[in-house]
């Protein structure tokens, strides 16, 4: 490419990235602007920055609790999906049981069921079991994900079968082969599943909205949305809440970028 044209291209791309990232900067700037000066018109250089909005945020919601909830719900969801996904993937990849094709097809079919078809009946089921407004209700629909099974099975199918045969000859049973031969060799796929599970749990809104009422059981998106009803005009508080919600997931993304992008590219889940 001619040098001038490529310089123009790079300049345009950098400018575009600036525009794309600007809302993040603006969110942060608003969160440290004194609420009184918000109406005076936008400014990037805040004269007297303050953490007042973060304090208001903490006073109006059990914020620490909500952040901790979001973290551990996302962590538990991730561990559960790694466990349920990898065991099922192992069965489909390595155990020749009758009806394997049919069972796998049923698993794949559950991928097509959208959450919005499930909210009413799941809500009814959990109400019957008196499990609404509990941590269990938050976790229930994401204990197993057929998508994780699918992705891990593809990875396991790539692991040479000679390895298990050698292990079998050495007296290893399926549990041993699963844990010490196959799992260590599909680490990238496990990382992809983990990152996707963590992110979708961290960002999930509709399901918590349906089952959670108590503020101390809320996760961040639900907490923020409730806050919105109370502080419609206090943008500094809303933006402080947004910052608290963005920073952790942005750190996860920057650390595990490769797996995040691989996961999104595979799934189209958002």
């Amino acid at each position: 490419m001619p040098r001038l044209r490529s310089a123009a291209l790079v300049a345009a791309l950098v400018l575009g990235a600036g525009v794309m990232l600007f809302p993040f900067l603006w969110t942060f700037v608003t969160s440290i602007t004194p609420s009184g000066s918000l109406a005076d018109g936008p400014t990037l250089l805040v004269e007297d920055p303050t953490l007042e909005a973060y304090r208001t945020l903490g006073d109006s919601l059990p914020m620490t609790r909500i952040v901790v909830n979001s973290f551990w719900i996302a962590a538990v969801t991730t561990l559960l999906q790694l466990f349920t996904g990898s065991t099922a993937a192992y069965a489909f990849s390595r155990i020749a049981f009758p009806g394997r094709g049919v069972v796998f097809a049923i698993y794949l079919a559950t991928l097509m069921i959208p959450l919005q078809v499930l909210i009413v009946p799941l809500f009814i089921q959990l109400t019957r079991l008196q499990l609404n407004d509990t941590y269990f209700a938050l976790l229930a629909p994401s204990i197993a994900s057929a998508f994780g099974v699918f992705l891990l099975r593809q990875a396991m199918d790539q692991v040479p079968r000679e390895l298990d045969e050698a292990a079998t000859l050495d007296g290893a049973n399926h549990l041993r082969i699963y844990a010490s031969v196959v799992l260590p060799l599909v680490r990238p796929a496990l990382a992809t599943v983990a990152v996707l599970a963590f992110m979708s749990s961290w960002n999930s809104y509709l399901w918590p909205l349906v089952v959670i009422r108590s503020p101390e059981l809320m996760t961040l998106p639900l907490g923020l949305a409730t806050l919105q009803g109370r502080y419609t005009t206090q943008w500094d508080v809303m933006m402080a809440g947004s910052v608290v919600s963005i920073v952790p997931i942005a750190v996860v993304y920057l650390l595990a970028q490769r797996y995040v992008i691989a996961g999104f590219a595979h799934s189209g889940l958002k």
Partner: peptide, 19 residues
């Protein structure tokens, strides 16, 4: 940089754009 908004939750995206 271009991918960063993808990992942000819809709730946050909606609030930021509302502002």
């Amino acid at each position: 940089a271009y991918f960063l908004p993808v990992v942000t939750s819809w709730v946050v995206v909606a609030l930021v754009w509302q502002w």
